[in-house]
């Protein structure tokens, strides 16, 4: 197996301006191509901004909308993972991330867990995604989980059962709960989270977080990649817009899965039986 060069597109979207954001995505794609990346990954709702509220209705696009097709078309040059508000034929609105390659859509993930507490109000505006699967990209399998999705361990677990070498996590993570550390509590938690998942599922976790402020809410960036041994592969040490490229050595997955065969030993039938019994008991 070879290595893949992943470009972390840590953008600062303009709230509600799909055209400006699409232009920025195209510029980042150009730079990622120039720098020889295999895939460029953008954060949650990079095409629209996050704190949309009633703007959801205006910025939503069908997946066959020309604005979206333009980005899918750009994947003829480099694989692109981007995120926007997707409107279904039945006029439901989803936070979605698309993996496009070779000019076509390989996979669409609709965010399943919509945080609606504290500063979050996603459940007010969005429908919940209802399916989850991993997908094949060239020589490896990937999964996508958007932000809050990975605060539910069942999501990476299910993706791992489906087969996952790389977990892409587009996020709009706000910095909050400042502590004594120069980084916020939420930022430190994210780093622990991706390292833990990477180690437990012996896969790469690629976390791409947006930057900038919306109505005073601060998105902390610091996109990062953790490797299958739980160590950090690389980190964007910045709260600002950045495009940074890191290499993922896919051979290290093989080595790590031999050394620590957690996935081999995972008993999905036991999980299935126990889960069914516990859920029934409730």
């Amino acid at each position: 197996m070879k290595s893949i060069r992943v470009a972390l597109g840590q953008v600062q979207p303009v709230l509600g301006d799909v055209y400006a954001n699409a232009d920025k995505h195209m510029a980042f794609i150009d730079r990622a191509v120039e720098q020889g990346a295999d895939v460029v990954v953008f954060p949650e709702l990079g095409l629209t901004g996050y704190l949309l509220r009633d703007l959801t209705y205006q910025v939503a696009r069908r997946i066959d909308d020309p604005d979206i097709e333009k980005l899918i078309g750009a994947s003829q040059r480099i694989d692109v993972l981007f995120s926007f508000v997707e409107e279904s034929a039945a006029h439901r609105f989803y936070t979605c991330s698309v993996y496009a390659s070779g000019g076509r859509v390989i996979h669409v993930h609709r965010k399943i867990y919509l945080p609606t507490y504290g500063l979050f109000e996603e459940g007010r505006h969005f429908s919940r995604g209802e399916s989850l699967n991993s997908f094949a990209v060239a020589e490896y399998r990937a999964g996508i989980a958007i932000c809050e999705d990975v605060w539910h361990p069942s999501v990476p677990y299910l993706l791992s059962v489906a087969g996952m070498d790389v977990l892409y996590v587009p996020a709009a993570g706000p910095g909050r709960a400042l502590g004594g550390d120069p980084h916020s509590g939420s930022q430190l938690f994210w780093e622990r989270l991706i390292r833990t998942y990477a180690q437990l599922f012996t896969c790469y976790v690629v976390f791409v977080n947006r930057v900038g402020f919306e109505d005073g809410v601060f998105f902390f960036g610091h996109s990062a990649i953790a490797g299958p041994d739980g160590e950090m592969v690389g980190k964007v040490e910045s709260h600002d817009e950045r495009l940074e490229i890191f290499s993922l050595d896919l051979a290290s997955i093989r080595k790590e899965r031999y050394r620590t065969p957690l996935l081999r030993d995972e008993d999905v039938h036991f999980t299935q039986r126990t889960l069914a019994r516990l859920v029934e008991g409730q």
Partner: peptide
């Protein structure tokens, strides 16, 4: 007091970003 050890860059970024936009 300890909890705001890293707050200055956030506050400066807030002013810059929310004013310039």
């Amino acid at each position: 007091e300890t909890s705001v050890a890293g707050a200055v860059p956030v506050l400066v970024g807030f002013l810059r970003d929310e004013i310039l936009k």
